[in-house]
């Protein structure tokens, strides 16, 4: 009764809202691109086009090809994060539909992008641990028909989206359920694990691809990104089916790039498959991304001086 008059007045005016601290804590459990993206120096200001032209003979002062490869890997890494986290963006823009003890639910709503399907997003909380699921079901089906396209978890450690989490995108399930997954169709599953509560932060992304005939097993592509104190960064990634060295075969190469915020970086690759199996290559670049030192494992001397490579002792700790 004591709320009657305010309630009646609120019928005549805009009352209510989304002002909630608890909602913020739930939203904080959802990863953002900014928190997980690779931060390779120069990726936001320079373009890779035109720099990837391989010359017959590498000389000191050329643009580092491994830097270019690293930048492409970083861009791919961030683009994949974008497409994955884009699924969660809409959740941030609308308040929860239902607030229950230790649970928030958005939806269910008809999904305009997936005709005939309903979508909902559930988040459960236990203390500072959160689990979330993006679920779909055919519109006409009952509650038991909900299935998860995306699942994730997060353990908060104060700070804005600071903690440890993982999320998984079940693409093969989505395809089986008749969902239009667009450009993800070639993948079976996408898994992301991350930790950003303390340096060095870590983001691991695993792309599991659908087996390509005549192969019967799924292939995997892994990206591992680390960020260390002082702006140091590391990206470990696999390049497959690339022409890395002269020969008849194309190579699979694992590249580990480490960079400093303003004095260049160092990359090494190891040939995992193809010509010169087991051979490795090390290349250093300066702040302008130009080669300062390069040496193949079978060469006695490389080009440039090894002492011109940036100090990466910070990675040893």
């Amino acid at each position: 009764m004591r709320n009657l008059w305010p309630a009646l007045l609120c019928l005549l005016a805009a009352c209510g809202g989304n002002f909630s601290n608890e909602d913020l804590e739930y939203l904080n459990a959802l990863p953002s691109r900014e928190a997980l993206a690779s931060k390779l120096p120069g990726t936001d200001t320079s373009s890779g086009s035109g720099l990837a032209q391989r010359r017959d003979r590498l000389v000191v002062g050329d643009i580092s090809q491994l830097y270019i490869d690293t930048r492409k890997a970083s861009a791919d890494f961030n683009a994949s994060l974008d497409s994955l986290l884009g699924l969660l963006e809409n959740i941030r823009t609308v308040p929860p539909t239902t607030r229950e003890p230790d649970r928030r639910t958005w939806g269910p709503w008809p999904d305009r992008n997936q005709p005939g399907h309903q979508v909902r997003f559930l988040m459960d909380r236990a203390g500072d641990s959160f689990d979330y699921r993006l679920q779909f079901k055919p519109s006409a089906a009952g509650e038991e028909a909900w299935w998860s396209f995306l699942e994730g978890s997060f353990k908060a450690d104060a700070g804005i989206r600071v903690g440890e989490g993982e999320l998984h995108l079940f693409i093969d399930d989505a395809v089986a359920q008749g969902l239009n997954v667009g450009g993800l169709r070639g993948l079976k599953q996408l898994d992301v694990g991350y930790q950003n509560k303390a340096l060095p932060t870590r983001v691991e992304m695993i792309f599991s691809a659908q087996p390509t005939p005549p192969l019967t097993t799924a292939t995997q592509v892994r990206y591992n990104y680390r960020e260390l104190p002082g702006g140091l960064g590391e990206m470990r990634f696999l390049l497959t089916d690339t022409d890395a060295v002269p020969g008849n075969l194309r190579e699979d190469v694992e590249i580990t790039s480490r960079w400093t915020p303003n004095s260049g970086g160092v990359a090494t690759f190891v040939i995992l498959q193809g010509d010169l199996l087991g051979a490795s290559y090390r290349e250093c670049w300066d702040a302008q991304n130009k080669v300062t030192f390069a040496k193949r494992s079978w060469e006695l001397f490389g080009i440039g001086k090894g002492s011109d490579c940036p100090d990466l002792s910070g990675f040893d700790g």
């Binding site: 009352c15 209510g16 989304n18 909602d23 939203l27």
Partner: peptide, 8 residues
Amino acid sequence: PDQFYSTF
């Protein structure tokens, strides 16, 4: 996101 609450 921005948050608000309004009431009488």
